[in-house]
Amino acid sequence: MVVLDVALILLASAQCGVFSSTQAHQFGLSNQDLHRLARKGHLVRLCHGGYALPQALECATADLRYLLTVRAAVLARPVRSWASHHAGLAVHGLPLHGVDTTSVDVCGRVTRRARSTGLEVHPLPEDEPCQVVGGIRVVSAALAVVQVAARSVAGGLVAVDAALHGGLVSDAELTAAADRAGLGPRQRARVAAVFGMADRSCESPGESLTRMLLSGLGLAFRTQVNLADSMGLIGRVDFLVGERVVVEFDGLVKYSGADGREALAAEKQREDRLRAAGYEVVRLTWADLKDPERVARMIRQAAARSAAH
């Protein structure tokens, strides 16, 4: 009967529960042995040549499972490679929006791009200051952000806002990364659009996407605005459209549990003060962001109510 060597289990545990088939071969396991162990549930195959101990995936969120897949994919590469694109974002702890988490991108010392099931290999840009983060080889946060922005404006905006807000990158680093990324004209245009919309004061992916939506609707607005009444500061709002319409993105997660109930009560008191001061409040959820016409209608109606006061 094929069993996992204790030393291999210890090695995998030191690597957050994952290992490569090459590492397993060093402990006497063949590819057939690994397939057999995976079929019996003693291992989980994450990608070509990458495996995880089942306990590493217990209660794992989708984001954590993807990060483990990235880790396994980098380990499984026969030549030195670095996680890149949205795989790089995951390693740097940046949010993933609208990306394909069934695939992993890496950069390596190759002359041209190559693709196989679940893996895409790209040439590593010259002068790229690669790093090791959490034990995983990865391109710089700036390059990963640029690579994602070159593919998706929405995904890129979420990533660049978070990277700037968290201090992971500077404007100069983003510009330098865009210059060395080897982008085509359309990709450069997409990245420039993302950079033009970036806002380091943005505090969540939902706010980034709300800002993009408001811009797309052609509305004049300000972000992260402090509002006050006769008693003093009411608080900072996500967006102020015109002069009297407050738009807030509400992810709802913060209102769960006992602490959430307190937060909800405080939020209601804050909103009551805003309304008493003559502001109208529009709250948006993830579902609203998928319906721009509905959002536009909500804001028009709020503006009309404000004007009628």
Rank of each mutant, 00 (worst) to 15 (best):
V110H: 06
A142M: 05
R270G: 04
L214F: 07
L217D: 02
D100F: 13
V148R: 04
P129S: 03
G88Y: 00
V3A: 14
D238G: 01
V246N: 00
T223N: 11
L34D: 12
V145L: 06
L168D: 11
D105F: 07
H85T: 12
L284G: 00
A62N: 12
A144H: 03
A62R: 15
A296M: 09
I234M: 02
V282Q: 00
H122Q: 14
G118R: 05
S81A: 15
A72L: 00
L214D: 04
Q269V: 13
A14N: 10
R137L: 12
G184E: 11
G134D: 01
Y255C: 05
P54K: 01
A56V: 10
F19S: 08
R113G: 03
L67S: 01
L43M: 05
F249I: 04
A304R: 14
M231E: 12
D238E: 00
E262D: 11
L94A: 06
L46S: 02
G135P: 00
P123I: 05
G28I: 04
Q55P: 11
Q32L: 10
R305E: 12
I234Y: 01
R36D: 15
S170L: 08
S81R: 07
S84G: 08
Q224W: 09
D33K: 07
L67F: 01
S30F: 07
V153H: 14
G196S: 13
K40N: 13
V79F: 14
L227D: 06
G41N: 09
S306T: 09
V2K: 11
F221N: 05
G166P: 06
A193R: 14
Q224G: 07
E173L: 12
A192G: 13
A7L: 12
A90R: 02
G196D: 14
L75E: 01
V3T: 13
G93A: 08
V70I: 05
L34M: 10
G184N: 13
A38T: 15
A307E: 14
G88W: 00
R112E: 12
Q131S: 13
D100P: 11
V3P: 08
C202E: 07
A265Q: 14
D100R: 15
R305D: 13
V191C: 06
G17M: 03
Y51C: 05
D199R: 03
R283N: 05
G41A: 07
D171W: 14
S140Y: 00
V158F: 04
R222W: 10
P95Y: 05
A38I: 10
V225G: 05
I299P: 00
M1K: 12
R137T: 10
L174D: 04
R113F: 06
V132A: 14
L37K: 09
Q26W: 10
P292W: 02
